[in-house]
Amino acid sequence: MTERAWIASRKGLFELLKRNERWTIGPVAFLGEPVSMVLADPRDGAVYAALNLGHFGVKLHRKDAGAEHWVEITAPAYPLKPENSADPVDWTVKFIWSMAYGGTDEPGVIWAGTLPGGLFRSTDRGESWSLVQSLWNAPERSEWFGGGYDVPGIHSICVDPRDSRHVLVGISCGGAWVTHDGGSSWALSAKGMHASYMPPERGDEQNVQDPHRIVGATGTPDQLWCQHHNGIWRSGNFGADWHEVSAAPLSNFGFAVAVHPTDGNTAWFAPALADQTRIPTDAALTVSRTTDGGKTFTALRTGLPQQDCYDLVYRHGLAVADDGCTLLMASTTGGVWLSENAGDSWRTISSSMPPVYSVCFG
C-alpha cells in the first residue's frame, strides 16, 4: 500500500504521509538545507538523502527502516587528480544528481551519478564508494559537455531487474551508456537519438546526445523511455536502439518522465516550451500520458493550474508509485500535486513549497 513519499527541496526534505485516506505534509529533515536527491530502497527500507551545501561540499545521509534519526554516511569523492593529467575537468563532486539501488541479489549495492559526469558504486549501503573508473576513463568523456549545468552529469541510472550487472546510465550531455558486466566495461547505447542543437553532420552521434531523463518499468524491463532535449524516445531492447515518438501533445520538450511499474507502454511526461522559455505551454500545467507505447497521448489537466502557471518540473520531479495509479509531481516554483487515478485528476498538496529537485515514493 502506498502511504509515504519524499520531497527533496532547496530548503529541506519533506515527508508526505497518507493518513485516514488523505495525503498531508509530515516531518521535515535538514530544514533550510538544499537536498538534491532522495532515494528510498525497498530492499531494506532505508532512505538516502544527498545534500549540496556549497562551501561545505556534498553530504550524504541515510535513515534506516524504523530508525528515528538520520545518520551521515560517506559521500562519493573522486580520487586525487594525477599531476600530469591533461583533463580540464575539476575532479570534485559538485552535485549528486541521481541515485539507484542495485538488484535483489546485491544487498547493499547503491549507485550514484554526479556532476561532473562520474558514476560511483557502493557495496555497503553508502558507507564507502568507488568511482567507476572504466566509464570515467572512457576516451569519449573528453567530448561530454554540460546540459543545464556547466559540466556534464549523470542523471539516470537504470538497473536491469533480470540481471544486476546490466546497467544503463543517461548523461547530459554524453548520451546513454550500458554495461553488461557490472561496470567493468561500457559501450555507447544512444543509437537512434538525434541532437538538433549540433551541426547537422553530428546530430546522430551517440556521444553528444542530451537525454534529460531515462526510466524503465520493472515488470517490462526491456522497455525504456527517454525524455530528450529534442523529443521523446522509446526503446524496446533496454537501450540497444531508440525510436522517436512523435505523437506527444502540446510539446515534446520537457525533463521528467515516469513509467508504469508493470506496463512499459504506459508513461507520463511533463511537457514544457523549449528552449529558453521553459514554462508550460500557454502557462497552463499539463501532464501527458500514453498507454499504448507512444502511439497516442492524452493531455491531463484536471486539478492542475491552468492560468498564469510558470512551473517547471525537473528531471526527478515526477514519480509513480508501485500501484501504477498514484503519481506525485513537484515544481521549481514550489507546487506539489498528487493523483490517485493515474493522472486523470490531481489535487494540490502545496503551492508554496521551496523549489523541488526530486520526489519518490517509499
Score class of each variant (00 low, 15 high):
199 P>F: 02
116 P>N: 07
337 W>P: 06
19 R>W: 12
266 T>I: 12
171 I>L: 04
56 F>K: 15
267 A>S: 09
231 G>K: 10
254 G>E: 00
362 G>A: 08
274 A>L: 14
9 S>P: 04
128 S>G: 10
353 M>Y: 11
119 L>Q: 09
78 Y>H: 03
360 C>V: 10
317 G>W: 02
267 A>N: 00
144 W>D: 02
44 D>T: 06
215 V>I: 14
342 A>E: 00
346 W>H: 05
242 W>E: 01
88 P>K: 13
140 E>W: 06
113 G>N: 03
211 P>E: 02
67 A>H: 12
24 T>W: 14
112 A>M: 02
342 A>K: 05
133 Q>E: 15
331 S>D: 03
357 Y>W: 13
209 Q>P: 02
88 P>Y: 11
338 L>M: 10
235 S>C: 11
113 G>P: 02
146 G>S: 05
353 M>W: 03
177 W>Y: 09
355 P>W: 06
133 Q>G: 12
345 S>Q: 09
102 G>Q: 05
293 G>C: 12
207 N>K: 15
222 D>F: 13
309 C>Q: 07
95 F>Q: 11
249 P>Y: 14
133 Q>P: 10
142 S>N: 12
183 G>W: 05
346 W>I: 04
206 Q>H: 09
1 M>F: 14
294 G>A: 13
282 D>M: 14
30 F>Q: 00
269 F>V: 06
57 G>N: 07
37 M>R: 09
206 Q>A: 03
325 C>R: 15
84 N>D: 15
278 R>Y: 05
362 G>I: 02
254 G>H: 03
324 G>F: 10
214 I>L: 02
94 K>E: 13
203 G>M: 06
162 R>A: 08
194 H>S: 14
54 G>S: 08
174 G>M: 00
50 A>T: 02
319 A>L: 05
337 W>E: 03
33 E>W: 09
125 R>C: 00
114 T>P: 04
22 R>P: 07
7 I>R: 03
159 V>W: 05
321 A>Q: 03
138 A>C: 11
44 D>K: 11
117 G>T: 02
40 A>S: 12
19 R>M: 12
226 C>N: 11
299 A>E: 04
324 G>M: 02
66 G>I: 00
349 I>K: 01
352 S>A: 15
154 I>G: 02
164 S>R: 08
333 T>M: 15
102 G>T: 02
208 V>K: 05
313 V>L: 01
303 G>Q: 02
57 G>S: 08
222 D>P: 01
238 F>V: 04
263 D>H: 14
263 D>P: 08
309 C>L: 10
141 R>P: 02
59 K>M: 07
190 A>M: 08
108 G>K: 03
311 D>A: 13
19 R>E: 13
341 N>K: 10
125 R>M: 06
67 A>V: 09
224 L>D: 05
255 F>T: 07
